[in-house]
Design a binder for these strands. Structure first.
Lengths: 208, 208
DNA sequence: GTCTATATTGAGATAGAC
DNA sequence: GTCTATCTCAATATAGAC
């Protein structure tokens, strides 16, 4: 909701309006390569007008990353609130993450590219790591209850699965015919059931 | 081979020696955020000494990206040279890509973060897109011959699968106990067979 | 092959008027 | 809430000596 809010007054920006334009530019050129000058040009403002709304370029990044992280953390909260089996809760997390990714594509894209150069970035990375840890715990639980195969390491599984989900930001574009539900179905289909035709030869046969 | 070459003369760098240090720094801070100054510090050289070996910062990037792209394209060449079924050739491509990723981790990591800001970057992205297109064609072929399930779009399948593979650069670190073969096995296991325990309830039952 | 300058450009950020 | 003008610093790159 916060990311697609329309500005109230026509002339003059509020924080959210500037944020939307800034995040789009950061994703296009990269955060470091986006100067306050080109940002001002895109907004049709002067550089100093931006500083009326944000105290620094860093603060713009901070706000954007918080939007993505809050949404992702919300998915875990919702899943933890459900009382189902670990496999059910994991399913909710995977589908929920795809939805967050699609609905907050700009800020999540930005989050996934953060390297940890500044304090703001390091704090965001720490929140991401905490998220990953909780997902890994959920995978372990699902393995322990017998819902997921146990021959793969839980952290490798959660990393590969979220690697697949996160890669969606590289190609998904809104209005391209595929909606979030369909993509979530595809992700869960590949992650849980795999690509192989049930009737085809197994890899063991193919590779010896 | 080219990326781990030891320098011949002890004092004084050759191009490869500078390249290794530069790529490591680019991956740590991001290309744009890495100045020639910190690069010089890491090398124990002055900035101008670097310009003796490379005409520009851009040229350093160009060399590094070419290393990654050549290796990945080589994987496709090898697979195309084999005469097996499409499913077998796809298997070779997936495992080969994991190996390239692990063996040329620095340059591939750099490649995966390129945004397309400069001509050098745009050319690299074009080569990446060509690679992806050939992989998608291979997936289609495997679907047509009945080796892979056909209810998923071939381009979505190849994107998700390579999203999983590419995400390895985010967490794999050499000497961490897991070797490339093991990771390739895990990737192929998840991609082809999925995570679900064969005997467990199916998703349809879980979600209604 | 490396150095000490230095030229030049553009960055993030501020002052103060309107 | 936005502007013009400017400060300050750091960036890429070059010149020319050793």
């Amino acid at each position: 909701m916060s990311e697609n809010t329309l500005r109230r007054g026509r002339p003059g920006y509020d924080q959210q309006g500037i944020l939307d334009v800034a995040v789009a530019a950061f994703n296009e050129y990269g955060y470091d390569a986006t100067s306050m000058g080109v940002l001002a040009d895109r907004l049709g403002l002067s550089k100093s007008a931006i500083y009326h709304h944000f105290t620094s370029k860093d603060e713009i990044l901070d706000r954007a990353l918080d939007s993505a992280l809050s949404a992702l953390e919300g998915v875990l909260e919702q899943a933890d609130a459900s009382t189902g089996r670990a496999a059910d809760r994991l399913d909710l997390v995977l589908r929920g993450a795809v939805h967050v990714l699609v609905e907050r594509l700009p800020s999540v894209t930005l989050l996934l590219r953060v390297r940890g150069n500044t304090e703001v970035e390091r704090l965001a990375l720490a929140r991401r790591r905490a998220f990953d840890k909780r997902v890994t715990a959920l995978v372990s639980e699902a393995q322990a209850e017998g819902s997921l195969r146990s021959d793969l390491d839980a952290s490798v599984v959660s990393r590969l699965t979220f690697g697949m989900i996160n890669s969606i930001v590289e190609w998904y574009r809104p209005g391209g015919g595929e909606d979030a539900d369909r993509i979530a179905d595809d992700v869960v289909a590949v992650a849980l059931d795999g690509l192989r035709m049930p009737t085809a030869n197994r890899v063991e046969d193919l590779l010896g």
